[in-house]
Write a protein that binds this DNA or RNA. Structure first.
Lengths: 160, 160
DNA sequence: TATTGTTATACTCTATAACTATA
DNA sequence: TATAGTTATAGAGTATAACAATA
């Protein structure tokens, strides 16, 4: 199998035409998960491309849309990122006036987040890109989609 | 342009106890792919943890092991990363003497890569971590593993 | 004392472009 | 001219720790 022979150290360059072997990696879910995520991410960026819409914005806008009045802390928990990671994203979204905030009289440390009309529009556009992207994925996974999502969700629930 | 009805603009902070809603994201394969990959990555790092073994090294060591004499260019293609991304990884692996290289008489621009015995050992340790990690994943996906890998592979083949 | 959000900082992974030395 | 590999640089994405204001 392996061309490894310690007695005579090899020096020959592997022929470029020979197929690359991946060994045990081939049968690891984690390895394919990484490659698939990377491919999916790139494909999504190709769709949103020119509009300079960061993929990271999408989840934040969607979560605020579906949870109007959510706080930055709750947002950071919901998106699985540290609060310090959320701050610059929100700063940019506030600066572009896609998100607005209102102070919370009950707790002056925090505030409530909402989408502006422009934010709703931007989200709608991103959602259209995501829907198109997911149609590509749907074609690939076919009737196994729900099974697939169920398994991915279990991976997150157990490992994270 | 302004669709906001000021009189009804919301300001109430969303109750922290309310569950966060994700809307259409819930039904997107790409979204769950991202979360699952992140969870799997973190779990793998927890396993290799102290040994200061970068997850990025694993694929490079495994590919060289299974393809002795591979060139940096072929390695970059095989791992789906740019050649400039491979250079610093190889520099570190060469410095730690996990990888050695020999010049190629037929083409002096390039060289052949091999694992040293220490590199084989390191790879074996990483492989043990990966195997343990994949056992965790196996428990989660159960008898759907092959189906899962097949779908992930198709996603890469179609989108990448 | 604990928590919210901000800031400073740093680390990982990645890519593009310019460069060199070959081919 | 084209390709292999290196270097310089930059940009996402992420995290930790220290901090000010508030609870």
């Amino acid at each position: 199998m392996d061309k490894t022979d310690i007695s005579k150290a090899q020096t020959r360059v592997k022929d470029d035409a020979e197929p690359v072997l991946l060994g045990e990696l081939e049968n690891y879910v984690g390895f394919h998960l990484r490659l698939a995520q990377s491919a999916s991410f790139k494909a999504f960026r190709r769709l949103t491309g020119e509009s300079s819409l960061r993929p990271g914005w999408f989840a934040v806008l969607a979560i605020i849309h579906h949870n109007p009045g959510i706080t930055p802390m709750a947002l950071s928990r919901a998106s699985g990122r540290d609060k310090s990671t959320i701050t610059p994203v929100l700063r940019e979204l506030l600066h572009e006036e896609l998100v607005r905030r209102s102070t919370n009289p009950a707790d002056k440390r925090s505030y409530a987040l909402f989408l502006t009309p422009a934010g709703e529009e931007k989200l709608a556009h991103l959602a259209a890109c995501a829907a198109e992207h997911d149609r590509e994925l749907d074609e690939i996974v076919g009737d196994k989609k729900q099974e697939m999502i169920r398994l991915l969700r279990r991976i997150v629930a157990v490992l994270d």
